[in-house]
């Protein structure tokens, strides 16, 4: 089957699948990012609690996304919200961890200078700590996004569309064309999103933070 023929038959379906897939990714990463950022900042203020929580999060991260979706599916049923919640939780971990370590790794002397200049805690956070942790936060965001593109494939497992539908159906029916038709766009989406985030990161990183410290 030529690619044109494939598009002729599946074109519309594929487009919808890509859009659904992207929707899952953007919504979940968006929710995960906001929650992770807030939690990461809070954790960086409470080192005693973080010492316990951060390793626990590390352990949670080893739970396969499949299980998350599976469990939520049992409780919430076959709804898009199931996928969104599962993916959001999953997207949360890398960003949370990187925000936390990013803030903590800000040089003590810079923080002291900021305090000495008369910055309030909020000003130190927004003018110094977050900008300096930005590259760590971004690499967390990149990781999350790429993972989420990957895990969103699982949505098809509970019949909720996305590019996974093509892959699953292809595998089940031994239809290679369907597998490629789903896998290729998924791979391309992941790569493009990764590059896009790299690009944004490069754009917003001030010259002073490039090329090491």
């Amino acid at each position: 089957m030529t690619p044109f023929k494939f598009l002729e038959i599946y074109g519309e379906k594929l487009l919808i699948a890509i859009l659904v897939h992207l929707e899952y990714v953007f919504v979940s990463v968006g929710i995960g990012f906001i929650i992770a950022l807030i939690l990461g900042i809070l954790l960086s203020r409470t080192p005693k609690i973080s010492k316990i929580i951060i390793p626990v999060i590390g352990v949670f991260q080893t739970i396969p996304g499949l299980v998350f979706i599976g469990v939520l599916f049992m409780y919430l049923g076959m709804k898009p919200i199931t996928v969104i919640i599962a993916l959001s939780i999953y997207a949360l971990f890398p960003i949370l961890k990187n925000t936390y370590t990013g803030i903590l790794s800000v040089d003590e002397s810079v923080k002291e200078a900021a305090r000495g200049c008369g910055m309030t805690n909020m000003q130190i956070l927004f003018k110094v700590e977050l900008p300096l942790a930005m590259s760590a936060i971004f690499s967390g965001l990149r990781m999350s996004t790429i993972y989420t593109v990957s895990w969103a494939v699982l949505a098809a497992m509970i019949g909720l569309g996305g590019l996974g539908e093509f892959i699953y159906r292809g595998i089940d029916t031994n239809n290679n064309v369907l597998i490629v038709g789903g896998a290729l766009p998924a791979a391309v989406i992941a790569i493009i999103l990764g590059l896009l985030i790299d690009c944004i990161q490069k754009k917003i990183t001030p010259r002073g933070l490039k090329g090491g410290k």
Partner: peptide, 9 residues
């Protein structure tokens, strides 16, 4: 970067 399932497929 490629999703695992896509790669496996």
């Amino acid at each position: 970067t490629i999703p695992v399932l896509a790669l496996l497929g």
